[in-house]
Design a protein around this nucleic acid. Structure first.
Lengths: 189, 189
DNA sequence: TTGATAAAACTAATATAATTAGTTAATATA
DNA sequence: TATATTAACTAATTATATTAGTTTTATCAA
């Protein structure tokens, strides 16, 4: 029922290699040709593990979102309120800094409407909801707040990654001030 | 000194066509083969107008940023304070909604570090700075605020475009509340 | 009017990727 | 031991970007 493979490639091993290519050379260098070369196999063999380039990107997206989730969840342990929001915020942007290619992959799913990708992303959303529950925002306001926090974190990371912030001004200070201002405003207004 | 072209393609005409392909089919369908077919010429002829696919993407990025800038500038006429911030914010997300492909192109420059792309983007940043001057934030705080506003607008647009917001909750309401909260927080904190 | 110049098209050829079809080798299990 | 299944392989096709070299056409100056 489950024969042993010749080379014994595990999908996680493939994703590790693909992730390293993405982080070091960028997602545009994650080609089947490149990936196969790194793995020591021929490109068509990859089709035994995922459904072509689109399938690889989808798997990388899920892999990356789960990796991100783990780090966010870890950062949120034992903290609450502003401290917790700042902790996951810093964890988020640091993930994007340490894993630029994998972060890019998390956004590369073919119209994120995909079921599995959606599901992986839902965990991150739930974590954010949980952390924000501390503030006792009324129903809709809490959901707006989740959207706002996600927008800030993704927008900040994405712009930083693309070199969009050029001023001589500490980026971490910006992040902290932006998050504090937003949370304060959501409670106060 | 300036011979007339055979077909007479203007670079703006090319970018219009490329932009339409991007908006309707997505940036991944903006290939030299596709673009040439739409224009009724052969792919190599495009090299007379820009430097390959990378050059096209760069030109599309500048074209898109300028288009975006025009709409933001128009939205900011005759308004100030919260009203102005909300006006450019709505204009921003509406641009991304009406021109998903062109918006994508504005982010596709090869590591935005490019001089011309940087310069086009600077106009958008300056517009934001101008609008925020109303609040008399002290130096650094004003710069942090610009970064925050850009992060929110880009993050919100990007996530909305990728179907990242799935809850049954009005998106425009979210945007208004997020912006108001952020601005309020930046002044108050 | 005519001939040089320059822009912008062309054809032909090459390199790289993704993908499909069909085949083969290795191994777990019945 | 025989079979089924997995995961590799080769060979071939298609699509794209790109380069090299050529041709066409229109402007402008002599």
């Amino acid at each position: 029922m489950s024969p042993r493979p010749k080379v014994g490639l595990e999908i996680t091993a493939i994703l590790d290699v693909a992730g390293k290519i993405a982080d070091v050379q960028g997602m545009q260098e994650v080609t089947l040709a490149n990936l196969a070369k790194q793995l020591g196999i021929r490109p068509p063999s990859l089709y035994n593990h995922f459904d072509g380039l689109a399938g690889l990107r989808k798997k990388m997206a899920i892999y990356g979102i789960n990796l991100l989730y783990e780090e966010l969840a870890h950062a949120a342990i034992g903290v609450a309120g502003d401290e917790a929001v700042l902790a996951i915020s810093k964890a988020y942007v640091n993930f994007a800094r340490r894993h630029p290619g994998i972060y890019e992959a998390t956004l590369m799913a073919p119209k994120m409407g995909d079921e599995e990708v959606q599901q992986a992303g839902a965990k991150v959303v739930e974590l954010t909801v949980t952390v924000l529950r501390y503030y006792d925002l009324n129903d809709d306001r809490a959901l707006h707040a989740v959207r706002g926090l996600r927008s800030i974190l993704h927008g900040f990371s994405s712009l930083e990654q693309r070199g969009g912030f050029k001023m001589e001004l500490d980026l971490n200070e910006s992040l902290v001030m932006i998050i504090k201002a937003f949370i304060h405003g959501m409670r106060d207004i």
